[in-house]
């Protein structure tokens, strides 16, 4: 049988992962000397409370190869077992690197680490679609080919409340261009092909939601979408209402952004993962 492994940046709750049959390897979040396994010892609510009071920014680290190896070994019980391991973009984290090391050590012929080139709700959409493929009886090659096809059509658009956390965390990439402004701005970013791309800067949340809607529109017809928020449930609901007006036939779930990505987004961020339909402007 084909098993699916992902990491905690997919932001599945334990219950969701269990019902999908997906195995989650946690990354680590550290506040000073206190160390937490993402989603295991630390849930989003508690994380944003800690973040608000923390004297300095938390840091994050990828799972060790050993953590992956333990999961892989447990899953490769019979000769028929195979593992597809889908993870946070390698341009954002070394997680995939650990998975590759573990796969090589355990059994490279039966473990297939895949770069989702995405994270959080984008990673969720890809993992769930792969689950459906497996349930429909697809073989490993088909599941992986479909993943590659879908990840090219998947992007996430984010509205951050501030650039501060992204800047402090050093994961700023090309959004570096946004730093150094005299005015307080809220960045609008996209995550596409695994990379954070600056889209625009706005002064107010309303302008930010407008910008997200424009980006969704420009993506064209959608196959799937999902909303994520960082300690800003009302903003998530507001975005869902706005999205409904543009994409009436898809009902977007709203997900809590987990501690790892939350470390870089900061609180009061909202985002939406869009999987463009095949042939749509964003689906090429």
């Amino acid at each position: 049988m084909i098993h699916l492994v992902t990491d905690s940046t997919a932001d599945f709750t334990a219950a969701e992962a269990a019902s999908l049959g997906v195995h989650v390897v946690p990354l680590t979040v550290r506040f000073g000397d206190a160390q937490f396994r993402d989603g295991v010892d630390l849930q989003p609510d508690e994380f944003y409370r800690l973040l608000a009071d923390a004297p300095e920014n938390p840091s994050t680290s990828q799972p060790s190869p050993r953590a992956f190896a333990a999961v892989y070994q447990a899953l490769l019980d019979t000769p028929d077992d195979q593992v597809i391991s889908v993870h946070i973009s390698r341009k954002l984290s070394g997680t995939l690197q650990s998975a590759l090391v573990a796969a090589r050590d355990v059994d490279p012929s039966r473990i297939y680490p895949v770069d989702s080139e995405s994270v959080t709700v984008g990673l969720q959409l890809l993992v769930e679609a792969a689950c459906r493929d497996i349930a429909a009886g697809a073989d490993v090659a088909t599941v992986i080919a479909n993943l590659a096809d879908r990840r090219a059509r998947t992007r996430i658009y984010f509205l951050l409340d501030t650039l501060t956390y992204l800047h402090r965390g050093g994961r700023i990439g090309r959004a570096q261009a946004f730093v150094g402004g005299v005015l307080k701005v809220k960045p609008v970013l996209s995550l596409q092909d695994g990379e954070v791309q600056p889209q625009s800067r706005v002064r107010s949340r309303q302008q930010g939601l407008d910008a997200l809607i424009d980006l969704i529109r420009a993506t064209g017809d959608l196959e799937d979408l999902r909303i994520v928020h960082a300690a800003a449930p009302r903003l998530g609901v507001e975005l869902r209402e706005r999205v409904r007006a543009v994409v009436p036939d898809l009902d977007a779930d709203i997900v809590d952004l987990g501690p790892v990505v939350g470390t870089y987004s900061g609180p009061n961020a909202v985002g939406v993962a869009c999987m463009a339909a095949v042939g749509a402007p964003g689906g090429e």
């Binding site: 261009a177 005015l183 701005v185 600056p198 889209q199 625009s200 800067r201 706005v202 002064r203 910008a211």
Partner: peptide, 10 residues
Amino acid sequence: GISALLCWDR
């Protein structure tokens, strides 16, 4: 002008 420049991207 500032609003316009905020979404300027080279």
